[in-house]
């Protein structure tokens, strides 16, 4: 977050200056961030240009192996895989980011309220969360999607629902551990209402672990999106979502047309990997022991 200059005067004698050893993390950090930027770039590009029409069957021969014209080959219907993959980035990255943002916002707000007020409010919120979390994430997502139906908006809603409890718990724990801190008490004393203490003073000091967790959650979300797509219950089977694409290429794997499933798989692997690398670097950065 904010980089702070060090207190030279007092640090010089007491202890070595506590400078965050950023350099150590820079490689994973750069790799993760770079990869994500690449995906984002591809997603944006796909709105303006793709090599072929990603939705047009018969752009090339059926099951063409990678060639100069179709660098990643084509599928059974002869659609260009590279074009589909590029458009698919929009789905996977977009749904994931939207879901993470919603889960982070709602989870943080509810968690902060639960953590700061405690008592009956806390109990009510936590019981609710426990009910959600009693189901495994993917199973829960499948159940809801089956119930409310397919579609991008529904998938986003479901994913944020699945991710939200973790943010809530994290925010609650962070705020709780700081509720008795003197600066929170001091904030009350200058005339802040309790809600202002919670959101203006405690929450900004608790955001580090929450932000670090977004990456982990994002990686997990990508996997769920792809899993839903693979099972054919999230989006329409025609949407060029990566999980969908893998499912479409399943038959080919046995008969030698490996590329149809392989390239979407690599795309998923790359995106989850990028999020994990970023998350790893971020959680090191926000390590409580390094916070002043």
């Amino acid at each position: 977050m904010t980089s702070r200059p060090i207190d030279i005067e007092s640090a010089a004698v007491v202890a070595p200056p506590r400078r965050r050893p950023r350099r150590r993390h820079s490689l994973t950090m750069k790799l993760g961030a770079g990869l994500l930027l690449f995906y984002a770039g591809v997603a944006v590009l796909s709105f303006f240009w793709t090599p072929h029409d990603p939705f047009m069957p018969g752009a090339g021969p059926s099951y063409s192996a990678p060639t100069w014209e179709f660098p990643l080959g084509t599928d059974r219907l002869g659609t260009d895989l590279l074009s589909r993959l590029m458009v698919g980035t929009r789905y996977d990255l977009g749904i994931c980011l939207a879901a993470v943002a919603i889960a982070l916002t709602i989870g943080t707000i509810l968690g902060t309220i639960a953590g700061y007020y405690g008592g009956a409010i806390d109990t009510a919120i936590m019981r609710m969360v426990e009910i959600f979390q009693a189901f495994p994430g993917l199973l829960f997502a499948m159940l809801i999607v089956q119930a409310v139906g397919a579609g991008v908006v529904n998938v986003i809603a479901v994913l944020s629902f699945v991710g939200m409890p973790d943010y809530l718990r994290l925010a609650r724990a962070e705020v709780r551990s700081r509720r008795e801190w003197q600066f929170a008490e001091a904030a009350r004393l200058v005339g802040n209402r309790p809600i202002a203490v919670a959101f203006k003073h405690l929450l900004p000091n608790s955001m580090g672990p929450l932000l670090a967790f977004t990456s982990v959650n994002a990686a997990f979300s990508v996997l769920i999106i792809a899993s839903l797509g693979f099972l054919g219950i999230g989006l329409s089977p025609d949407d060029p979502e990566w999980g969908n694409m893998i499912a479409r290429g399943q038959d080919g794997v046995m008969t030698g047309e490996w590329w149809v499933s392989m390239f979407p798989g690599i795309a998923i692997l790359g995106m989850t990997g990028a999020f994990y690398m970023l998350g790893d670097a971020l959680s090191d950065l926000f390590d409580p022991r390094r916070r002043t």
Binding site: A12, P16, P17, R19, P21
Partner: peptide
């Protein structure tokens, strides 16, 4: 002390 940046104080 050596700082992580390698400076000696």
């Amino acid at each position: 002390f050596m700082s992580p940046a390698g400076e000696y104080n």
